[in-house]
Design a protein around this nucleic acid. Structure first.
Length: 106
DNA sequence: GCGGTGACGGTCG
DNA sequence: CCGACCGCCACCG
């Protein structure tokens, strides 16, 4: 049932270091997929929060939480704050300071 | 197989 | 900086 694409996506998300975030498009590219940002969102949605994956470290390219508050966005904001990532009331995150750069190992 | 939908992303005004 | 549009593409009824 878990497609190969999903497996790759999850593998990438699992590598995001604590205290760092990655964008949907970034995850898609690292997973070797093209124009699949939406698919990444769909893959994470399929988890329904029931997972050991750091799904909360994935945000959109605008540097904001895409998930509606009542659908888990609130929990995502809380988890990020808990890791020392600044998230303002509007769900905005300073990407320049927190975006994950693969290779820098953090 | 078709059409609507969305945890996206880049552009434009 | 923000909202409106449009292009993309897998999932679902």
């Amino acid at each position: 049932m878990t497609s190969d694409a999903y497996h790759r996506i999850y593998a990438v998300v699992r590598r995001i270091p604590r205290g760092k975030v990655a964008t949907y498009g970034q995850v898609a590219r690292l997973a070797g997929l093209v124009n699949a940002a939406r698919q990444v969102g769909y893959a994470l949605h399929a988890l329904s929060g029931v997972s050991a994956l750091p799904w909360h470290r994935v945000i959109n390219s605008a540097g904001r939480i895409s998930l509606p508050p009542e659908a888990g966005g609130l929990e995502q904001r809380f988890r990020l704050l808990e890791e020392g990532i600044m998230v303002d009331a509007a769900g905005r995150i300073p990407l320049g300071r927190h975006q994950w750069r693969p290779g820098s190992r953090r």
